[in-house]
Structure formats: structure tokens, C-alpha cells
Simulated scan of single mutants.
Amino acid sequence: MSRIPIILLSIASGVAASMAVIALMMPDVPHPPNVPFRTTPEEDRVIFEGCLVFFAVAYATARTLYRLVGAEDGALAVADTASQHMPVLHVLASAMLIVIALPTVWGGHARLRDWLTLGLGGILLPMAVRDLLEALRRHRPFGLNFGSPRRGRPEC
């Protein structure tokens, strides 16, 4: 499989997931009547969540598809492209999905959308934490060594 279909499938999955999140959450958001072009803070939050879900799902899908077809160089290219900002965005997105859905599920008033949101966050969070730890190991900010072996450094 070449890069173009994987990229298109990744974008399509990100768009589908973000549109699903927005469609599931937007009907419950109150909107003031007679104010057609102003958004409420709740609407802004839903749109923000949709954007986070788009990036998280698109990158996760691309990485997974490249690994499924055995193109490890493609998976590495996705990881290198996203290595600076995407791990943090993935952690925030998945944690936000869990935090949003958990009180409703925990309280016993969950609807299907709450379970779907919680499930998506639960699937993405371990992947996001793994990506963040990989990025920290790769970039080693501030000289931290995050469990990788010391190479070429004298022992003190």
C-alpha cells in the first residue's frame, strides 16, 4: 500500500471521529436563540474536543496502518513528523475524553455517546502515553535519561 491511500484513510478516520464526537455532543449544548453567529463556551469546548479527536485519531490511524502493512519506515516518518507536539496533544485529547465522559458514566446516567467517548479515550490514552515516553526518550530534554542506557557517558 502506498503512502497516499494511508494518508487519505488517516484523514478520513480523523474527520469521521471528530464529526461523530461533535454530532454526539452538540445537541445537548445550549445555544441562545436569535444569536446566529456567536458561539457559547460550551460550543467552543465541543469544537475544541473535535479538533483534538481529529489529530489524535488521524495520527494513530496512520501509524497503525503503516505498521499493519509492514512499512515501518512510514510509521517512523509519522512518528518523526509528530514527535514534537503530537504526543502531548494525544495525551490531552484522550485524557479530556475520559474526564468528560467519566462523571456521567460513573453517576449511572450514561448514554451511548458517553460510553463511546469513554471507550475512545480509553483506547487512545495508552497509545498517547507510550508515544510521549518515546518522544521524551528520543529527544532527551534537559539531559534527562528516562530509562534508556547511558552511551558514551562516563560513570561518576
Rank of each mutant, 00 (worst) to 15 (best):
S2F: 14
R3F: 15
R3E: 10
I4V: 14
I7T: 14
L8G: 03
S10C: 11
S10V: 10
I11R: 06
G14M: 09
V15S: 03
V15I: 15
A17R: 08
S18Y: 13
M19A: 14
A20M: 15
A20Q: 14
I22C: 02
A23V: 04
L24T: 07
M25H: 12
P30Q: 09
P30I: 12
H31T: 15
P32C: 05
P33D: 02
N34W: 12
V35G: 00
P36F: 04
T39A: 07
E42K: 13
E43A: 15
V46R: 02
I47L: 10
E49F: 10
C51L: 11
V53D: 00
F54Q: 08
F54M: 13
A58F: 04
A58P: 01
A62G: 14
R63C: 05
T64E: 00
R67L: 10
L68D: 00
V69Q: 04
G70H: 07
A71L: 10
D73P: 00
G74P: 01
A75N: 12
A75W: 11
A79Q: 07
T81D: 04
S83Y: 05
Q84I: 15
M86G: 03
M86C: 02
V88K: 07
H90A: 13
V91F: 06
L92A: 10
A93I: 02
S94W: 12
L97I: 08
V99T: 07
A101C: 07
T104K: 12
V105T: 02
W106P: 00
G107Q: 12
A110V: 04
L112G: 08
L112R: 14
L112P: 01
R113I: 06
D114R: 11
T117N: 06
G121M: 04
G121V: 09
I123K: 02
I123N: 00
A128I: 11
A128E: 04
V129D: 01
R130H: 04
D131V: 00
E134A: 13
E134P: 00
L136M: 11
L136H: 05
P141S: 03
F142T: 10
L144V: 13
L144N: 08
N145E: 11
N145R: 09
F146H: 04
R150M: 05
R150K: 10
P154K: 08
